[in-house]
């Protein structure tokens, strides 16, 4: 039976972005409905042509940086959208604080979304926060 997952991505650390992306890509490609809401320090990585590299939290972040075979988190989020129709939604408040609009973000990100809309959509589903 397919599930309805709502993933809130806030942290700008490598480990959390990676785990959220792994979860989103596997769930979406397995037929679950996945919505990812990006806000706070997680959002700037999705500004077009961003060269920003996430900070490492600990041992696993370092391991992932040293291993060439770890799929990049942005690629996994993109796969979630392309293979499993995951919705990748930027937080409208975070965009306002950054003083940019949705067009400044990577094309796989959907429309800027407010919390009220996100919470309405998330009703009855599973909410995961990274």
């Amino acid at each position: 039976m397919s599930q309805n997952y709502h993933i809130v991505c806030l942290s700008g650390t490598r480990e959390k972005l990676q785990m959220a992306a792994m979860f989103a890509s596997v769930a979406a490609a397995t037929g679950d409905q996945v919505t990812v809401f990006f806000s706070m320090n997680a959002l700037p990585f999705f500004i077009k042509d961003s060269q920003q590299v996430p900070a490492v939290e600990g041992q696993f972040g370092e391991l992932m940086e040293s291993e060439a075979g770890v799929p990049p988190f942005k690629q996994l989020f993109k796969s979630a959208a392309e293979l499993g129709d995951a919705k990748l939604l930027p937080c409208s408040m975070a965009l306002d604080l950054l003083q940019i609009d949705g067009d400044a973000l990577d094309p796989e990100l959907g429309p800027p979304t407010g919390l009220t809309r996100f919470l309405n959509d998330a009703e009855g589903g599973q909410l995961l926060t990274f």
């Binding site: 792994m22 890509s25 596997v26 490609a29 291993e67 060439a68 075979g69 770890v70 799929p71 996994l76 796969s79 293979l83």
Partner: peptide
């Protein structure tokens, strides 16, 4: 030489 979930995503593609 790629780590989870790289091979699975390749297969799904």
């Amino acid at each position: 030489n790629t780590f989870c979930p790289g091979p699975l995503m390749e297969l799904i593609t």
